[in-house]
Amino acid sequence: MLRDDVRALWTEPRPPGVPGRVWRDWALLGAILSGVALEAVLRDDVVWRPVAVVLSVWLAVLSLWRRTRPLLTVALAFGATILLQVVTVVADPGEPVGLYAGLVVLVLVYALPRWGSGREVVLGGVVVLAGFAVSVATDDPPAGEAVGGLVFLLMPAVIGASVRLWVTTRERQWERVRSRERERLARELHDTVAHHVSAMVIRAQAGRVVAGADPAAAVEALEGVEEEGARTLEEMRAMVATLRDSGAGAELAPPGGIADLARLLRAPGVRLRVDLGLDGDLEALSPAVDAAVYRIVQESVTNAMRHAADATEVVVRITGEPRRVRVTVRDDGAGAGRGRDGYGLAGLRERAALLGGELSAGPDADRGWRVEAELPRGRANNGVHPRARR
Rank of each mutant, 00 (worst) to 15 (best):
Q205A: 14
H195P: 00
M200H: 04
R187F: 06
E188F: 06
G207V: 06
A204C: 10
V197D: 00
R187A: 15
M200I: 04
A221W: 04
A211Q: 06
R187P: 01
R203Q: 14
V219N: 08
V201Y: 00
E223C: 03
R203N: 12
D191K: 08
H196Q: 07
I202T: 14
A217W: 11
M200A: 08
V197C: 00
E220K: 15
A217E: 11
P215T: 04
S198R: 10
R203Y: 09
D214V: 12
A218D: 05
V193I: 14
A218H: 13
P215W: 08
V193Q: 02
G212A: 09
R187D: 09
A213I: 13
V209H: 08
A194P: 07
A213E: 10
A218Y: 02
A211Y: 01
R208H: 05
I202S: 14
L222E: 03
M200Y: 02
H196G: 02
H190L: 15
V197L: 07
L185P: 01
V219C: 11
V210T: 05
G207E: 03
E220W: 12
A218V: 10
V210R: 08
G212K: 06
L189P: 00
G207P: 07
V210S: 03
A218R: 13
D191Q: 13
H196D: 02
T192E: 02
E220P: 11
A204T: 10
A206F: 13
S198F: 00
A186N: 03
L189M: 08
L189I: 04
R187L: 15
G207Y: 03
D214G: 02
A194W: 05
A204K: 05
H196M: 05
H190V: 13
A206I: 14
G212Y: 03
A221K: 09
A204P: 08
V197G: 00
H196N: 05
R203C: 08
E223V: 11
G224P: 06
G224L: 09
D191F: 11
P215E: 02
Q205N: 07
Q205W: 04
R208A: 14
D191V: 13
A186V: 08
A194F: 04
V197M: 00
A199C: 04
A218I: 11
A217K: 13
